[in-house]
């Protein structure tokens, strides 16, 4: 099957939609014109850069280049998640990167090694886009989970301390907060599992179909990735909550109340 190519001239026609958004903003006095133009420009620049870079990386086809790209993704995911949290600092960043790295690597090794059976193992055409999806989703899960974990401990600090005072360990005292945090991270992916294919076709599957892949083959990829994302997100969340417990509690099972309300730092 031939793939229909989009020329730059034809692509530029889509600027009509950007112009349409600007007009709607002006017409309704939304004052979003600047944001729309900057957002549109960033989309074009970032994706062109990513496209050029990916083409270069695919041509190089070197194992260590794939690994460097994964490392860069991981570092960026750590910062991406950190930016969404109320408690920051070097230790929190470490917790984010560690939980995303462990859960994503396990998921990627299983998916690419056993299910897709990529050969060679570092083939950037498979490893980079799939890793991007897994790491990106893990990043969201880690941020959702830790925001909720922090919020629960802060909201229920009296109850947590009451449990500690009765002889609970930090793990026992934080059990409800951990559960709430893990559920908060899992609920969006569960909602996705329930509606996928009914409301919208997922991006990866759509891309494969547009690229000429048989839809029955494309759905196999999609099912595999959805299952992997489910486990990767839950593992990231539980791991992040487990590691964050070491941040919010002292080794003597004391709740760091100063850290919860932001009056002390998490620094190393």
């Amino acid at each position: 099957m031939n793939i229909l190519q989009i020329s730059v001239l034809h692509l530029s026609l889509t600027l009509v939609f950007v112009a349409g958004a600007v007009v709607m903003s002006l017409w309704n006095r939304l004052r979003l014109e600047k944001d729309i133009l900057i957002g549109a420009a960033r989309t074009a620049i970032q994706l062109v850069a990513a496209g050029v870079l990916l083409r270069f990386i695919f041509r190089l086809d070197l194992w260590y280049v794939s690994l460097v790209v994964l490392a860069v993704m991981l570092v960026a995911a750590g910062f991406g998640a950190l930016g969404r949290l109320g408690v920051r600092g070097a230790r929190m960043y470490g917790i984010l990167v560690a939980s995303i790295a462990v859960a994503s690597s396990a998921a990627l090794l299983f998916l690419l090694g056993l299910v897709v059976r990529v050969s060679p193992w570092y083939d950037p055409r498979y490893v980079i886009p799939v890793a991007g999806m897994v790491i990106g989703n893990s990043m969201t899960a880690a941020a959702l989970c830790l925001n909720r974990f922090h919020g629960e401990l802060k909201l229920r600090s009296s109850e947590v301390e009451a449990r500690l005072a009765l002889g609970a360990t930090s793990s026992q005292a934080a059990r409800n907060a951990t559960k709430a945090a893990a559920r908060a991270a899992a609920i969006p992916v569960l909602a996705n599992l329930a509606t996928v294919g009914m409301v919208q076709l997922p991006g990866m599957m759509t891309g494969q179909i547009l690229a000429g892949i048989d839809p029955t083959q494309a759905i196999r990829y999609q099912i595999a990735i959805m299952y992997v994302l489910l486990a990767a997100k839950m593992a990231t969340a539980l791991l992040a909550a487990r590691l964050a417990r070491g941040l919010f509690f002292t080794p003597a099972h004391q709740l760091r109340t100063g850290l919860l309300d932001g009056s002390s730092k998490t620094g190393l």
Partner: peptide
């Protein structure tokens, strides 16, 4: 600390 807290009970103000 866990054993200590079982030996030293506390009743909070609220």
């Amino acid at each position: 600390p866990v054993i200590l807290r079982r030996r030293v009970g506390i009743v909070f103000q609220t």
